[in-house]
């Protein structure tokens, strides 16, 4: 059942392109004001999901509700409440940054101030520059500016910081936090796990067209996946131990070493990236095992019929 009290509700969403199954029954909700990060390898179904919710693609089956409207039939008044930052754009760009922003501001009923948005994305210096003369990162900032110019209730960000330098990325994070504080609901896809961890309230990991995990950022992968790792050097060899009580473990290492310093010591809590990579690789090996098992099953059956 669709949940109409939330900003985005997705139930058993499926999408087929011919014989290829891109989405195989995905379900999740995004609450009002929440930032939800959708993570996953290339081709996992992230963009298909987001483009169905934006109204760009039709779904094969399942139910979706975006701000209380079915995106397959959403009209102009519905679009006026959305902000969309697509994955890429290659427009010929014979207009200046300011002209483009001013024009798009005019399309929305309650737009944000053009100068304020220029400042928010750090393009005050380039406001008179033709779009085609901007660098890749600057163009991406225009994309983001166009996504927020309408003052959206719900903002879609499909890999928004690709091509940003580290400073620009930090600046962008600040902008997104301001939007969050204003109550904007955000659906974010990204390949940068630190970005998802910095901005997201919750994350969903999608692989092979299915949601393999979903939860708050600090609960993804379960408690087990977050057990810290102690690493140290012993006779020149790397050793490591996972333990829920790293301090006690380190104290024992020191006492075992006759009270002397332990070399190369570090205590690491698995980052979202470690956990994500672990989940995805386990999913992929699992899939291989399943297909092997299926092959064996067929062989066994053939043997049995002989």
């Amino acid at each position: 059942m669709i949940n109409s009290d939330v900003a985005v509700s997705v139930r058993d969403l499926r999408k087929r392109y011919g014989k290829f199954v891109a989405l195989d029954g995905v379900s999740f909700d995004i609450a009002h004001g929440e930032t939800f990060a959708l993570l996953g390898p290339n081709g996992a179904g992230k963009s298909t999901t987001i483009e169905i919710l934006e109204g760009y693609r039709d779904r094969t089956s399942g139910e979706t509700s975006v701000l209380g409207v079915d995106p397959g039939t959403g009209g102009l008044a519905w679009k006026a409440r959305l902000g969309i930052v697509l994955q890429s754009s290659g427009e010929s760009g014979n207009v200046t940054v300011r002209e483009q922003l001013t024009h798009f501001a005019g399309i929305y009923p309650h737009p944000r101030d053009v100068d304020e948005v220029l400042a928010a994305v750090g393009l005050e210096q380039q406001h008179k520059t033709l779009m085609r003369k901007l660098s890749g990162g600057q163009r991406r900032r225009v994309d983001v500016a166009l996504g927020i110019i309408g003052g959206p209730e719900l903002l879609f960000l499909d890999e928004p910081t690709t091509g940003f330098d580290p400073e620009a990325r930090r600046q962008f994070w600040g902008l997104i936090r301001e939007l969050k504080n204003d109550g904007t609901t955000i659906l974010l896809t990204t390949h940068y796990l630190d970005e998802a961890a910095a901005l997201g309230d919750r994350a969903g990991i999608i692989a092979g067209g299915a949601l393999i995990d979903i939860g708050t950022i600090d609960a993804i992968g379960g408690a087990e996946a977050r057990v810290p790792v102690v690493r140290w050097l012993e006779n020149g060899a790397r050793r490591e131990q996972r333990t829920a009580e790293p301090a006690t473990f380190v104290a024992r290492l020191v006492s075992d070493n006759g009270g002397r310093e332990v070399f190369g010591l570090e205590v690491v809590r698995p980052s979202l990236e470690d956990i994500y990579l672990d989940l995805v690789s386990r999913f992929e090996t699992g899939e291989r095992d399943d297909s092997l098992a299926a092959t064996h099953g067929v062989l066994n059956q053939q043997e049995a019929t002989r």
């Binding site: 934006e54 102009l76 008044a77 679009k79 697509l86 890429s88 798009f104 929305y108 309408g150």
Partner: peptide
Amino acid sequence: GTLKRLAGTP
């Protein structure tokens, strides 16, 4: 992508 961008606006 010009039309795709416009399609996402009102």
